[in-house]
Design a protein around this nucleic acid. Structure first.
Lengths: 207, 207
DNA sequence: AAACTTAATGAACAGTGTTCAGTAATCCAA
DNA sequence: TTGGATTACTGAACACTGTTCATTAAGTTT
């Protein structure tokens, strides 16, 4: 049926339109001001229309999150050019932090905000969170190489991933949420301290 | 003037009443359901009344945050009983993580949520964030001892603090925000991995 | 052309933080 | 003790938010 096909295409086209407007809004005015009503106004549809394509706002944000992870994944592939696993690790660690600091609102969506994870909070097990898979597996792969080549202190792959991820996420999220104010430093000093902290950490996890 | 004094006392008493209701509400039903209206209903006053004692919700949350940090500070002092700085470091690191996992809503307020830090986002410099001072200085003190006694790898006190803090905050915040779902483990396994990660990290920062 | 199906919406609901005019209670001087 | 000033409090409103649903408009099928 050609008509059904066209309808299908139109449906996808509409979703794309919504996603595009949401992403632009996210990057331009931030998460807090990206409301269903604002998105609807941007694409010149009624707010109710959005609910014909997304069950609720969380579902929309979930899709948006997937796109954000796609962006991060691309960045990873771009930056991880080094030969040794340790070099690659350094490159993606720094890429991660840079991404977080440059696109704080996307970072929010991916790693901080409650929103698109609400269904997953009560581990019902039916469906897991798979948005971050790309990026996480990319990290795991490099770690595996590091362990295989006996360059990494860690024995357990997952513990290694958790350690590295927690460190960089800790740095980014404390910074974007202004908690580093407690250190009473100027902005430059803080950025410097973050860089040094990463370097020190990367030195420590080497054998 | 005795009357002015009494008025002052009554004003403070009212603030205390509001804070108590807010804290109870925070712990019982969480941040998301702690609205000005709900608090007002709990203390049997009009919502508008709260605005006679707090300029806005952020100011209220700021006070609440201060109380939360007081709680964490007490926990630190309680748990840091070890003799060596490294033992104390381990004790407060684990106390921090335990606090975060047991009281996720308070942890939110202290380290994750944007809310009470909004004024500080555009570093106007007029007033800094001093709620976390107690806890941060407690950490700095132990680190200083560790460096003095040449037990810690770090040279810079602040870098050390940032590294340790970022690690534990990373672990807690990724967990309370369900991002560890990406690892596809059961809850027990995750908690286990967190513990191991802390242990591994503490080993690494020792000389 | 009539009947059926689908897409879109206006209006409403329940919730949020916040403001402000107006009321009620208290205090102080005459 | 009474009248006027001060203070404490609140109801109602405003401008938002996400979400639902009956109704309208458009497109498709018979």
């Amino acid at each position: 049926m050609g008509i059904a096909d066209r309808k299908e295409r139109e449906k996808l086209e509409m979703k794309r339109l919504i996603m595009e407007a949401s992403m632009r809004m996210f990057l331009e005015v931030g998460y807090e001001k990206t409301s269903i009503r604002n998105i609807a106004e941007k694409i010149e549809y009624s707010p109710a229309t959005i609910y014909l394509y997304y069950k609720d706002k969380d579902e929309l944000l979930y899709d948006l999150q997937a796109q954000a992870f796609e962006q991060l994944f691309e960045t990873f592939k771009e930056k991880a050019t080094g030969r040794s696993p340790m070099k690659k690790l350094e490159q993606i660690a720094k890429a991660y932090v840079q991404f977080g600091l440059e696109k704080p609102d996307l970072y929010d969506l991916m790693f901080i905000i409650r929103s698109p994870m609400k269904k997953l909070e009560k581990e019902d097990g039916t469906d897991a969170w798979d948005n971050g898979d790309n990026c996480f597996n990319f990290l795991l792969d490099i770690i595996q190489q590091g362990i295989d080549q006996k360059l990494l202190r860690f024995k357990d792959k997952l513990v290694a991933a958790l350690s590295i991820w927690s460190m960089v996420h800790g740095l980014v999220s404390l910074h974007v949420r202004c908690r580093m104010k407690v250190m009473n430093m100027e902005e430059d000093g803080v950025i410097n301290a973050i860089d040094t902290t990463i370097d020190e950490y990367l030195k420590m996890i080497k054998i």
